[in-house]
Computed example of a mutant assay.
Amino acid sequence: MKLSLSIQQAFEAPELVLKRVYLKKVIETTLRYIDTQSDCEMGIACVNHDESHKLNLQYRDKDKPTNVLSFPSDLPDEMAQILDTFPLGDLVICIPVVLQEAIEQNKTPIEHFTHMLVHGTLHLMGYDHETSEQDAEEMEALEIQILAKLGFENPYLEQ
């Protein structure tokens, strides 16, 4: 499995330096863990409060910024099967929200950002935590296991 990654960093923070190689490692670890074998492509946009707020309102009817938004590819399966690289979709990560949540949760910025990257990637792969308690538990368990593979603690433990 190969990953083609497009990164748009419209918002940067000195306390969270993001390297392409690190982002690819996190995403590839996530995809391999859930047994994805196809070559994939994905986009990531790191944005500010205003952009996240606007997109969250437009696509989810929520009048506030959020940590991560997932936009799965809507390519029909028939089309996806003839492509060499499967488009997963795009993630929009609001860096200021992630940094604030990291402080509130007593986590390092990279620790929380990594969790949001794993979380968003799972959403692109069809996992959901809002439809049922069982789905939420399955997604949370996957996040915990994938983050452990990456060397991080359970993100759901109170610190």
Rank of each mutant, 00 (worst) to 15 (best):
P109T: 01
L5I: 12
F71S: 05
T29M: 15
V92C: 10
Q145D: 07
L142I: 08
A102D: 00
S132M: 07
S73Q: 03
P65Y: 11
F71A: 12
I103N: 06
K64N: 09
C46Y: 05
G120E: 03
C40M: 14
G126I: 02
I146A: 15
Q134A: 13
P109W: 05
P76V: 13
I34S: 06
R60C: 12
E15I: 12
L83K: 00
K2C: 08
K25E: 11
L124S: 11
A148H: 07
M139E: 13
A10L: 10
V68W: 02
R20L: 15
L157P: 00
T108F: 08
L124F: 11
F71M: 11
T66E: 01
I146R: 04
S132H: 05
K54F: 15
A136P: 00
C40N: 15
G151E: 01
S38D: 02
R32A: 15
A10I: 02
E138M: 09
T66G: 12
S6K: 06
R60D: 07
T114V: 06
Q8K: 12
Q8Y: 14
E133P: 03
D39I: 02
N154M: 05
D61V: 06
Q100V: 13
N154S: 09
I110P: 03
E143K: 10
L16D: 09
E51Q: 12
K107M: 15
L83D: 00
T85P: 05
T36M: 13
N67C: 07
I95A: 06
H115P: 00
M139N: 06
E12D: 08
F113K: 07
I7F: 03
Y22P: 00
E101M: 10
E41M: 14
N48V: 12
K24C: 06
L157H: 00
I27Q: 04
G126C: 08
S4W: 10
R20I: 12
N67F: 09
G151T: 01
E158C: 03
F11V: 07
A13R: 06
H112G: 03
S52W: 04
I27L: 14
D90I: 00
L55G: 10
V47S: 01
D84E: 09
A13V: 01
L18Q: 05
A10R: 09
Q81T: 02
Y22V: 15
R60W: 04
L88N: 03
C46T: 05
L124M: 07
G89Q: 06
V21H: 07
L23Y: 06
E137R: 15
L150S: 06
T131K: 06
K62N: 04
L55V: 02
D63L: 15
V17E: 13
H119L: 03
L117Q: 01
H112T: 04
